[in-house]
């Protein structure tokens, strides 16, 4: 029986079937914790644990899917070009806002980690916490953290931002919908952007762009921050 699990098609089929089932569930029940990615990951882990299948066997197929993260990141550049026209007149305030947010995110992760005496691997894995999952994984490979830990935390941050982001911003006195969009994209990447699109197409565009810009910014800065704090890469 174990030969079947070791075939790449097992991991591919399991992921695709569970993912589309989770998406169908989400379209029936609009509850934020039923985020398709979150549900799919939880169900697949349960399945593998219960049947005692090692992650390595599953990932023989999983790597075929992960491979497409590369071209998907390139596709973000196309998205950026499409949305760029919409916000051209506000480009400088927008870039400054994303820049401040991105830097605050890196600084906050670093300072809290130091204050709580977190192990180095935590800073290495979480420094890219706010950016979109595929880019965060790439950054973690450079900073030599644990890519799976990054993916887990980044997805959790996205779901948190999606659920509470706009409510929190209203509470602290943010009235501009485009500012809410920029903030959701900067802090909670694609899953936050999904929320911004619900608010409106323009906040959605700001959010998508903010996700791309913060991805580039964090890629450029975080290796040096990690090098500075931890002392090695």
């Amino acid at each position: 029986m174990s030969e079947i699990y070791q075939h790449p098609i097992f991991g591919i089929l399991l992921t695709v079937i569970v993912f589309f089932a989770a998406r169908a569930l989400r379209s029936k029940i609009k509850f934020v914790l039923f985020n398709p990615v979150l549900v799919a990951i939880t169900l697949i882990i349960l399945f593998l644990v219960i049947l005692d299948i090692p992650f390595e066997d599953y990932n023989k197929g999983g790597t075929y899917l992960s491979f497409f993260l590369g071209p998907a990141i390139v596709a973000l550049g196309v998205l950026f070009y499409e949305k760029y026209e919409l916000i051209k007149h506000n480009i400088y305030p927008f870039l400054l806002a994303v820049g401040c947010g991105g830097l605050i995110s890196i600084a906050s992760v670093s300072l809290i980690s130091i204050a709580m005496h977190a192990p180095d691997v935590l800073i290495r894995s979480l420094v890219s916490m706010s950016v979109t999952t595929p880019i965060a994984i790439e950054i973690t490979k450079i900073t030599e953290g644990i890519p799976s830990l990054t993916a887990g935390v980044v997805i959790a941050v996205g779901v948190f931002g999606n659920a509470f982001g706009s409510g929190f911003l209203k509470l602290v006195g943010i009235k501009s919908q485009t500012a809410v969009g920029t903030a959701l994209g900067t802090a909670a990447h694609g899953i936050g952007t999904a929320r911004a699109i619900e608010i409106g197409p323009l906040p959605g565009a700001y959010s998508g762009l903010a996700m791309c810009v913060n991805g580039i910014l964090t890629t450029l800065i975080s290796p040096y921050v990690v090098l500075w704090i931890v002392g090695s890469l």
Binding site: P93, L96, I112, M129, F168, K175, A183
Partner: peptide, 26 residues
Amino acid sequence: MLCVIAVVTTLLTLYITALVQQKLEK
């Protein structure tokens, strides 16, 4: 530790980004 880092950082990033954009946008 993971929860503290994730929650504090996300809220702080949301607030600072939105504040700067709201103050400066045309």
